[in-house]
């Protein structure tokens, strides 16, 4: 219930955050909304000795129209992503995915960058960002680099971020057919993480992206499904391939076999819904 002791440090800019991280090294963790990190610390599963609070780095909270893509500051809260007029119009998949995260209280605190950096395999946003071929902008001591979503998620709670690096911006290309989206989150209770989930952007055929939640240690693109669709397969036939290349786990919520079945059903439903919306 009570986190172990730590030293609190506060950054008011990206530069300051990076400097603090360099100063404290491995002992430090960035604190964004804290809706994933603080619960881990309260259960004493994580015990960083320094927390660098990014809450005042207001320069990283924005949703900007950059023409062919939308740039979202890493510290933009889920609530603001979910209610962004720009995103609701141009990338509704992302806005609606943010709406599905946790509950209203969590969405008032949690950030898109925090969710991406935390990389829970059962999280909602990483999968949709993967489906949308997002690019992540990362700043470190040595400068700025970008990483494609496809290369960013390495394992459970593991990303391509090097120690001290800060995710600053998420760049999401505007889809050709924004309304051809679907987000299927399957759970026992509304508040639960997805037992399995599917995010689709595209109306079938070519250029349809399908991503899966909780079918492996990272979000996954259902490439077998995508290839089948690109080759003219029907939605039903393509969706039947949803579990290929996945590595779902078994736990108290679901067995691997059931997860694989759910993946097939959810992908089919997501493709049908995206198609109907197009």
């Amino acid at each position: 219930m009570i986190p172990p002791s730590f030293t609190y440090a506060r950054a008011t800019s990206v530069d300051e955050a990076l400097a603090l991280a360099a100063e404290h090294g491995e002992d430090a963790k960035y604190l964004a909304g804290g809706q994933s990190l603080l619960p881990l610390m309260k259960l004493r599963f994580a015990a960083p000795t320094v927390l660098i609070d990014l809450g005042r780095v207001t320069e990283l909270s924005y949703v900007r129209d950059e023409g062919t893509y939308v740039a979202i500051g890493a510290l933009t809260r889920h609530h603001d992503v979910a209610t962004s007029e720009l995103l609701l119009a141009d990338i509704p998949l992302l806005a609606h995915t943010a709406e599905a995260v946790g509950d209203p209280q969590i969405r008032h605190r949690g950030t898109i960058g925090g969710s991406v950096a935390h990389a829970d395999a059962a999280a909602d946003l990483p999968a949709s960002l993967l489906a949308l071929d997002a690019t992540f902008v990362v700043r470190g001591e040595s400068g700025t680099r970008t990483a494609a979503a496809a290369e960013f998620f390495k394992g459970i709670f593991e990303t391509a971020l090097e120690p001290g690096e800060l995710l600053t911006e998420i760049q999401v290309p505007k889809p050709a057919s924004p309304s051809a989206w679907s987000f299927q989150k399957f759970n026992k209770r509304a508040i639960d993480f997805a037992m399995v989930g599917a995010a689709v952007q595209g109306a079938g055929g070519q250029n349809t992206a399908v991503a899966l939640i909780n079918m492996g240690s990272t979000p996954l693109r259902a490439t077998a499904v995508e290839s089948a669709l690109a080759n003219g397969a029907s939605i039903a036939d393509a969706a039947a391939l949803a579990a290929e290349g996945t590595n779902a786990g078994s736990d108290i919520h679901a067995s691997k076999a059931y997860r694989e079945h759910l993946a097939r059903v959810l992908v089919r439903r997501a493709l049908e819904e995206a198609s109907a919306r197009a």
Partner: peptide
């Protein structure tokens, strides 16, 4: 705005 005060420092 509503927040869960147990998960805010």
């Amino acid at each position: 705005e509503s927040v869960k005060s147990c998960t805010v420092l």
